[in-house]
């Protein structure tokens, strides 16, 4: 096990290094500069700005500086918000995005699994159809449409909850609904289909024959196996939701970190692009690693330290 973890750790470092290098050269390859503006003021002012942010140095030197900033995890000041460091932007955005993300994942997991299990147990009955209709709707309605809709209906028309901004627990409910619906639907469908498959297996019949309670059969025997596909997508889902989503955060005016992914690229704010990419990829790689460990916990047949651990 330890050997496996060490091996994975070095692979992770390598992955992140490759991502970082690719990002650096790609972002320098796209045309444009952070100082391109409609009202470009003055050549001297531009030179001073370039010098200030080390952009006047040759590319290899910039690359070395960049690698240094990754190793020390200090990305320096943002170009477009010159009195802020990238670290402080991520530092205040991430906790908010993560908080929203955790609740989103919890809600999506619990409601998704419940819907899936119920639908599978009542296969081809009314409950099944209802649950799957909800799931299909959830997958097909884009979250920004749902977001605008819930704001209009629940906040503006019914005045039940605040429309946007980020102040109290009530403010979280609408964005959670908007964000969790999609993942919930995916999880529900995955759970249902693998649950259906598992329920027809011989060992479930055996368990029934032994006279185990239905609850025990479903939760202890069937669900544990049926959850494998859900665990597989969980890693990517977690990394995506926890680091914030641009559209939902914009619509609900949530001060998370989602916007930096998009703004950074649009404004060619190189330190912000570096910071967000390295942060996100590190996070994603770690989540995938966690998921692999989870496999082992859920299904002892999967041996991590032998081949086929991935």
């Amino acid at each position: 096990m330890l050997k496996y973890i060490v091996k994975r750790f070095f692979l992770m470092i390598l992955t992140i290094f490759i991502i970082a290098t690719l990002t650096f050269f790609l972002m320098n390859a796209i045309p444009g500069s952070p100082f391109n503006e409609e009202k470009t003021s003055n050549a001297v002012v531009q030179q001073n700005l370039e010098k200030h942010f080390n952009l006047d140095k040759p590319l290899p030197v910039q690359y070395v500086l960049y690698l240094k900033s990754i190793i020390t995890f200090d990305f320096g000041p943002s170009i477009k918000q010159p009195t802020e460091t990238v670290n402080s932007l991520l530092g205040r955005g991430f906790p908010i995005s993560a908080e929203l993300g955790i609740w989103t994942i919890l809600v999506a997991l619990i409601s998704g699994i419940t819907l899936g299990v119920v639908a599978a147990l009542r296969h081809n009955k009314l409950i099944d159809y209802t649950a799957m209709t909800i799931a299909v709707l959830g997958i097909s309605i884009p979250n920004f449409v749902l977001a605008t809709l819930v704001i209009q209906v629940i906040a503006v028309d019914l005045k039940l909850l605040p429309a946007a901004t980020w102040n109290s627990p009530q403010h979280m409910i609408l964005p959670i609904i908007a964000l969790a619906t999609g993942p919930m639907a995916i999880i529900a469908r995955l759970t249902r289909s693998s649950m259906l498959e598992t329920l027809t297996q011989d060992y479930i019949k055996t368990a029934r024959a032994k006279g185990l309670s239905p609850f025990k059969i479903v939760v202890k025997h069937a669900l544990r196996n049926a959850l494998m596909p859900v665990v597989t997508i969980l890693g990517t889902l977690l990394a995506g939701v926890l680091t914030g989503t641009f559209v939902i955060e914009k619509i609900f005016a949530i001060p998370g970190m989602g916007k930096y992914f998009v703004q950074g690229i649009n404004q060619r704010d190189y330190p912000v692009i570096m910071g967000t990419t390295v942060f996100y990829s590190t996070f994603l790689v770690m989540m995938l690693f966690l998921v692999d460990i989870m496999y082992g916990v859920l299904d002892p047949r999967i041996k991590l330290h032998k081949k086929g651990g991935e």
Binding site: I151, A155, K159, A163, A164, T165, K250, I251, A253
Partner: peptide, 18 residues
């Protein structure tokens, strides 16, 4: 000063009195 980037949301907040 709120910091709402989305004009639709801004308008909805105006409608709801915020």
């Amino acid at each position: 000063f709120a910091m709402v980037d989305d004009t639709n949301t801004e308008y909805q907040l105006f409608e709801s009195g915020d």
